[in-house]
Design a protein around this nucleic acid. Structure first.
Lengths: 222, 222
DNA sequence: TCAATGCTTCGGCTATGGCCGAACTATGAA
DNA sequence: TTCATAGTTCGGCCATAGCCGAAGCATTGA
């Protein structure tokens, strides 16, 4: 009677189609206004406002007032991780016809998950890092000395340790294996974009240039 | 717009309190019957049956027929992981310590779980029995000679061994630790009621009399 | 100061879906 | 065979909560 209802409250919030659409729209880590989210969810503005108030109360999104706009973003990586996991479960049931459009293929290849990289290449990276002993295993792996050396060589500054874990695993919905999240995951995405190895496409898609993909693979020994 | 609804379907399934309770009850990996899950969820059997059919369709639980029972277990670790994550999010919000009504407090103190005792006192009993070497450990602990002696002294007949395990552990909702189920768990509850140490209240609540509580604690050395 | 924009609150409508009792099927026991 | 137990299906009741339009703040710009 204790855990049940409390998780059901959170799950019920995600369980409404309009709210789910909003949350998915926020999965790329950007902040959107109430009007934009209403548009994404396909509901009228008052309805969206009500939904967002409830999501905010439950700590799934955080508001930021700016002028006469109110921006909302996902509260943190855990919320993004939960949504990714639910996507994986939803997909596996086969309820969804395959329908693998071109945009879908790009999403599978590489995309943003909150503030880090997800998709096929991100999963390969994560597995390689473990294999090479650069990071440990588990939910919040350690960054080893080997890992620090590798990153230093690439010119990626190791984020200072705050409240947020340096490394975290996040289950990838398209690959069904872990990719790397946490502060370091965010730093790597930043590096990839800063180097021009890839650029953000529409929505969550991340497009690697041919040269960028090669550089990425070389950098991490893929 | 395509992902939203599909994750919302899964989330909505978890989002119903009755179903959430069932899923949480299954979190220890064991399989439970429809009746047991109905009891855990606090709903009637037909209602539980319907819920489980939907959870099964969505691939969150898997059924296994055995005789005239139908056992359900969580489909896989991903489902468990998603529930854990949702628990974490729900907890961090601090959202729901709220509704601690009198009936709720009574439920936490002592209640019936299927046909045995659950709640704070039941968990203490189970831990004491293990500590005193009266029963073993694991999912279906053995009853030791020390345990048989204790029960004989209290005048509790040891149930004849049928298909049902004599001792079984059952995860306690409110305490999140194990209490004692199985044929012996049922026998102990029967004894408690027969001795007038406690009486069934409304719903699942079990109310101990002051003298009954003292007698119970003395009997088991709590 | 007035107007325009962005958002929230309110009130009322509606439908989804959760719940149960009763009746029915299937399995096992006597 | 007959009875008992476990579970499913059906029908109907009812509450929750999702939705929108209208009206009410609040912030910005003229």
């Amino acid at each position: 009677m204790k855990d049940g209802p409390s998780i059901s409250h959170v799950a019920a919030l995600i369980g409404d189609p309009a709210r789910a659409n909003m949350l998915v729209a926020l999965m790329d880590g950007r902040a959107l206004t109430v009007s934009e989210l209403a548009e994404c969810a396909g509901v009228a503005l008052p309805t969206a406002s009500g939904h967002l108030a409830r999501l905010g109360d439950a700590g799934l999104v955080t508001p930021a007032k700016q002028g006469r706009h109110r921006y909302f973003r996902l509260a943190d990586g855990d919320v993004a991780a939960a949504i990714e996991l639910l996507m994986g479960i939803a997909e596996r049931t086969g309820a969804r016809p395959a329908r693998t459009g071109p945009r879908d293929a790009a999403m599978r290849a590489a995309r943003v998950c909150y503030d880090h990289l997800a998709g096929e290449r991100a999963v390969r990276l994560a597995e390689r890092l473990v294999e090479d002993g650069c990071i440990g295993e588990g939910e919040t792996p350690d960054l080893t000395d080997a890992g620090r050396t590798l990153l230093a060589g690439l010119g990626i500054a190791i984020p200072t340790q705050g409240r947020r874990p340096l490394c975290r695993t996040c289950l990838d919905w398209s690959e069904r294996r872990n990719h790397l999240a946490g502060a370091l995951g965010a730093a790597i995405l930043g590096h990839v974009l800063a180097q021009g190895w890839a650029a953000r496409g529409p929505g969550r898609v991340v497009r690697f240039t041919p040269a960028g993909a090669a550089a990425f693979d070389r950098a991490f020994g893929l």
